[in-house]
Design a protein around this nucleic acid. Structure first.
Lengths: 352, 352
DNA sequence: TTGAAAGCGCTAACAC
DNA sequence: GTGTTAGCGCTTTCAA
């Protein structure tokens, strides 16, 4: 049937259809098939139809690794997040995908478990895929990672924090400003002894920023009050840990009239622990969270918290990437997008 | 310095270091560098050190696209899930990553939004990356997807459901059996009029299995009782929708003494709606969930539910893939892993 | 509008 | 243990 069908090399271990085979089938050159796929407008209607028919009948699926190698574009975005299952980051990933998938970009997801060292390692591994863009959480990275990022020569978007000097671009909000606003809110409600509870030794840099904001806010607005912070250690961010923190705060710091948690997950656990133990919120003690865990809105009482637009962070990051990739990715000016934060005054705090 | 440094083609648009450059730097052949990286044991210690030094000083990062093309292995796994932000699937992804990342496999994540049509499209797009394995949620796929899957000639793991005739392998549990067990539990508690509430028109095939189990269970155990089902339509799986379903059930089906929700998210919303509206659970009405949303454990009352090991599904799927990939992926026998399900008798139901 | 030639950066196969 | 040769399947460049 096909005269030179046997000249196939023995190296080919897959039996997948190649561009050349489609070309042969359609009676055109490989080049024409390639064009028919990528720039259908530039091929004559006649040829186009013939090629498309051949693609269908052969079941051709383009090999993107070959395309990548030849064109030096992978249509791939590397995404490094602390954890997939931490819900808030999952929202960001969803936002990224929503924006990028329609443009043919696929997402490589890697998790760093809040470790900068692991971030560097994953980054190194991912760079081998030659991604067209990189999304990171946070603005702090190891020196090694910094070097890798500049050497990669692709758009980089840092997220979930803000800085005046991003590696390239940054999409996020100021954890410091957000927490400051929350402290001010608590102050304006007339609370007299706020304490902070959360996880500050697990490597989460953004939690440390919030803690700094708490400390500064205390010194500024509650100068007479000692700054008290409860650290859950490395137990992880869970509702269980939140319940423990709540009990600990009630026992060790009975003077406190409001407990500010570094995360909504902790706060939700605390609120339910209060409910279970018969502690009335906000009458006996006030509770605030941080982050916008959906459950907070539904709890009884509803949770006072700082809402973070996690999904929008992903969407904006996707847009910034697209723009920089399409525009020939000049690393001239860095884009800084502040997605802001929203105070939600729930029922878990009240005017004193 | 380097005699033939100028023979570089103009096509090279990246300035990234290549294997050949490392080889030149180290004074060995490219092949030796390749071996030093992939099979360090087979290279002499002397050479190995020299090569490693060159890699470091040049900042070489292997181009995996080229490697993929030459070796016909991408060290890539395609993962298609209904949604990233639906938490349960995020756990599965985390499980996959935990098992696969240490072996050098990276994950491509795509979301289908519970649409089989979109699953097929994403699958087609992902196959261009020539993944070494594919993970899908569910055992139902479009005919087109089925064709693509067999043509791909790589291990495929379906998940979150069980079937005797998987495309290749399957890791999951029987949604039907799990829901049946829950109906039996409710029956054994002495409830007289269970109703089912959830979303059954959003394309979630597994929810339909659970509904079928409910219907069959009702006919078997509650033959006198009409089978009543509340469908939230296409509102999406949210706590808000759960609250609506709860109110609707109380109004339209006052005879019901237990509401069985198709998902823990709905049930959690319902439980909090009950709390807010002063309806006592389980005294006035019983509530059950499905899935193992972590919040259920902490609610007051705690939620009666069917726990699904979502993370373990990912881990097992990862193991099955690894085994099949390493073993030369003979599609001879299909592996079927039942991860089971666990009934959690919470406080939201009680002996009648 | 189409085709021919060359090469992207790596690895398989085979020699030495 | 190391090097040479010949591709993997595609796109770029240039010519027709």
């Amino acid at each position: 049937m096909h005269p030179d069908g046997e000249k196939r090399s023995s190296r080919r271990s897959t039996r997948s259809v190649t561009l050349a085979e489609v070309a042969e089938h359609a009676g055109v050159s490989p080049q024409t098939v390639s064009r028919a796929i990528r720039q259908p407008g530039v091929v004559s209607e006649d040829t186009l139809e013939r090629v498309q028919a051949s693609i269908r009948s052969t079941g051709y699926v383009p090999n993107l690794a070959a395309s990548n190698l030849a064109s030096n574009r992978s249509r791939t975005i590397a995404v490094l997040i602390p954890a997939v299952s931490a819900s808030v980051f999952a929202e960001t990933v969803q936002g990224l995908e929503t924006v990028l998938a329609p443009h043919g970009y696929h997402l490589f997801i890697g998790t760093t478990e809040y470790s900068l060292q692991q971030e560097e390692e994953m980054l190194r591994a991912f760079l081998g895929r030659r991604p067209d863009g990189i999304v990171l959480v946070g603005t702090e990275h190891t020196p090694g990672a910094q070097t890798l990022l500049s050497a990669a020569r692709v758009p980089v978007v840092e997220s979930w924090e803000l800085t005046q000097h991003p590696v390239d671009s940054v999409v996020g909000f100021s954890n410091y400003a957000a927490m400051s606003a929350l402290v001010e809110h608590v102050h304006s409600l007339g609370y007299r002894f706020p304490v902070l509870a959360g996880q500050f030794s697990g490597g989460d840099v953004r939690a440390l920023r919030r803690r700094a904001a708490f400390e500064d806010g205390m010194r500024r607005l509650f100068p007479q009050v000692p700054v008290r912070i409860l650290d859950s250690g490395t137990a992880g961010v869970s509702m269980d840990a939140g319940r423990d923190l709540f009990r600990q705060a009630r026992t060790e710091l009975p003077q406190a009239d409001v407990i500010m948690f570094s995360s909504d997950v902790f706060a939700a656990g605390a609120l339910l622990e209060a409910l279970r133990s018969g502690t009335s919120v906000p009458t006996e003690i006030g509770i605030t969270g941080f982050g916008g865990f959906d459950v907070g809105r539904h709890l009884v009482p509803t949770l006072t918290t700082m809402l973070v637009p996690s999904r929008r962070i992903g969407e904006e990051a996707g847009r910034v990437l697209l723009e920089r990739i399409e525009s020939g990715q000049k690393p001239s000016s860095s884009t800084i997008v502040d997605v802001g934060h929203t105070l939600v005054a729930g029922e878990s705090t009240a005017q004193q």
